[in-house]
Design a protein around this nucleic acid. Structure first.
Length: 581
RNA sequence: GGCCCCGUAGCUCAGCUGGAUAGAGCAACUGACUUCUAAUCAGUAGGUCGUACGUUCGAAUCGUACCGGGGUCACCA
């Protein structure tokens, strides 16, 4: 168990004791009690606001309550001293022995240091990317992809059972466009001097599909009856495109658990089934939506459509299920899809969407509310768009051929780890400027290098120690017998390492993987500082030949640091480097 | 006009969901390489947390109203 939880338990026990002794009343709301690392060193190793929270709940003086709790928290193995400061903070000084033992704990837990169980095995459906299968992935997809993947790793690390899901839009109108475009490309490949029709995908990324189509079918498609031909092209192109997309994802170190086909779902009559459930609940009707206010819609005309009564669940307007010509809107299959997620028994459903879909959120929530039969946690994470910068100009991404930056093209020049790290070093609801030139320059501005450099330095030290037979230690337990007091710089680092389990918990709880990236920077910084201190003083070294005993502790500290960095990077889906190149 | 997101150092961003004297990186300035890898480190300087009210022991954080920027708004996906 990690230090924050240990302290928290001690604090809560103290409160319970005081209640039992009738020195204070039983408080109601104690969720706000936090145990955290204070910013200033003189404020102890950990501090808690318990006295102030209770002061408010019981409406009495925080400092009085603080004194009472303080008296209950003394003489413990891990607590050295408790002081009552400021408006009522309890500042806790941790015993030096504890920090020694933490190093051992990290080393013996290794890959599982920081793991948590608060997910309690609950099933999470995490939907992300879900790009239309009409072309390869481009830069616009990367952020959501990387974010979703990191979140999945994080949630698994804290005990959820995560299904990473990709919704394949293979049932809508855009597939018709895909088929038509591929057919024209096919004709062009055959030598026909023919221009692409108006409504088609202009990029040349469909040319290889046409070529492969030609390899397999020869010229015969030209004479095949249209319905049959479209069917062949459709299947062929979809399979091809999904293969490309999967390989794009793989090159970003992302692997989906499930590809959910819209068309397959439609074929199973899922839409009708879902709608009949909603009908039974009186949530479907035919009606006319009012014209949008504010803006003047010259082409607006009243139409009667089949509508979903999402206003019953706090949506602004009821949403159309069918277009006026009677065909499904995009929303109809998506509604059935979300009903299906619930049917599959997930406890937590998370959608990751681009911020340009923010208007879609309330109707999805309405769907979940309409169908959920048990308590389901539903959240839509919106990732802001990535602004692409090249030659100091913002690049407008459009589906026109030229300014389309494909993931494949990008990865030819840049390591995917860098892309991942940059994307994850930002809260997802702030827009991200992605400077291509900076990225291609492989400069020192590359933030992932800083963390990796710390990792590589440790690898290098351990490798050298191994050559000198100083590492690995014969047994981790050997370390327990030693009592080398950690010096100041070392303590700073160990204390930073002690935060890891809490960082994991908080990131997972709030679905914010960027906290991991920031934390790793802090760990790296703390390590670099310690490492560098030998240049300043000439005295501190991880390896001092002939001083095996002294070095054991230092090497163990380096090793635990590396474990934390490795665990952190692996949650971000980034491969740690043993040496810089 | 409605809804969503953002506004914190010159720039890019954190700020642990209400706590103590608001922090990093880049850029600027001063200093440290005969090494276990200087892609690093130590230090200096830089702030009306968009504005104004409010909630309370206490606000960058919560509420309301404004200001500024971005996104989005039936019969697209």
């Amino acid at each position: 168990m990690d230090i924050v939880n240990i302290l928290r338990d001690k604090i809560l026990n103290s409160v319970d004791e005081l209640v039992e002794e009738k020195k204070i009343q039983k408080p109601f709301n104690i969720d706000n009690i936090v145990v955290e690392r204070p910013k200033k060193q003189h404020q102890g190793d950990y501090s808690t606001n318990v006295a102030m929270v209770l002061g408010k709940a019981l409406s009495s003086n925080p400092r009085d309550i603080g004194e009472l709790i303080k008296s209950k928290m003394g003489d413990e193995d891990i607590i050295d001293a408790v002081s009552l400061d400021g408006p009522g903070f309890l500042n806790i000084k941790i015993n030096l022995k504890f920090w020694d033992s933490l190093i051992i704990e990290i080393m013996s837990n290794d890959k599982s240091y920081g793991e948590d169980r608060f997910g309690r095995g609950r099933k999470v459906n995490l939907e992300f990317v879900s790009a239309n299968p009409t072309g390869p992935l481009h830069l616009g997809h990367v952020r959501g992809a990387v974010f979703g993947d990191a979140l999945a790793r994080l949630l698994e690390f804290v005990g959820f059972q995560v299904t990473k899901e990709y919704y394949v839009n293979d049932g809508g109108a855009q597939i018709g466009i895909l088929v038509r475009t591929v057919y024209y490309r096919y004709l062009q490949t055959l030598g026909d001097d023919i221009a692409l029709p108006e409504d088609s995908y202009p990029g040349d990324y469909l040319l290889p599909v046409a070529e492969k189509l030609l390899d397999k079918y020869g010229e015969e498609l030209k004479n095949t009856e249209e319905f049959e031909r479209d069917k062949i092209i459709r299947e062929f192109s979809l399979e091809y495109m999904m293969k490309v997309i999967k390989s794009d994802l793989a090159s970003l170190n992302i692997e989906m658990d499930n590809f959910f086909s819209e068309q397959t779902m439609i074929n199973s009559n899922a839409i009708e089934t879902a709608l009949s459930t909603l009908k039974d609940k009186g949530l479907i009707y035919n009606g006319i939506i009012e014209a949008p206010k504010g803006k003047t819609h010259t082409d607006w005309e009243a139409r009667e459509q089949m509508l979903f009564k999402s206003t019953k669940f706090d949506d602004d307007i009821d949403r159309p299920i069918k277009k006026s010509d009677g065909s499904w809107t995009y929303f109809a299959p998506d509604l059935a899809y979300h009903a299906d997620k619930l049917k599959r028994g997930f406890d937590v459903v998370i959608d990751i969407l681009g911020a340009d879909h923010s208007g879609y959120v309330s109707r999805l929530k309405a769907v979940i509310n309409a169908f959920a039969e048990k308590r389901v946690e539903f959240e839509v994470k919106l990732v802001q768009l990535v602004k692409l910068i090249k030659n100091e100009k913002v690049l407008k991404m459009s589906k026109r051929a030229g300014d389309y930056i494909l993931i494949q093209d990008l990865l030819e020049e840049v390591n995917s780890d860098f892309i991942r790290f940059v994307m994850l070093t930002r809260n997802n609801d702030v827009p991200l400027d992605f400077d291509i030139d900076l990225m291609l320059s492989k400069s020192k501005d590359n933030p992932v290098f800083y963390v990796n450099y710390a990792h590589a330095r440790i690898s290098s030290v351990l490798k050298r120690a191994k050559e000198l037979n100083m590492w690995p230690l014969s047994k981790v337990e050997d370390l327990e017998k030693r009592t080398f007091p950690l010096i100041e710089n070392e303590l700073t680092l160990v204390k930073k390492l002690s935060e890891w389990p809490n960082v994991v918990r908080q990131s997972a709880k709030f679905h914010e993987p960027h906290r991991i990236a920031f934390y790793l920077n802090e760990v790296a910084s703390s390590f670099h500082s310690l490492y560098q201190s030998s240049y300043e003083s000439g005295s501190y070294r991880f390896i001092v030949e002939g001083a095996q005993e002294l070095c054991a502790n230092r090497l163990a500290l380096a090793n635990s640091t590396q474990i934390v960095i490795r665990n952190g990077l692996s949650l971000l889906g980034i491969v740690p480097l043993d040496e810089m190149y």
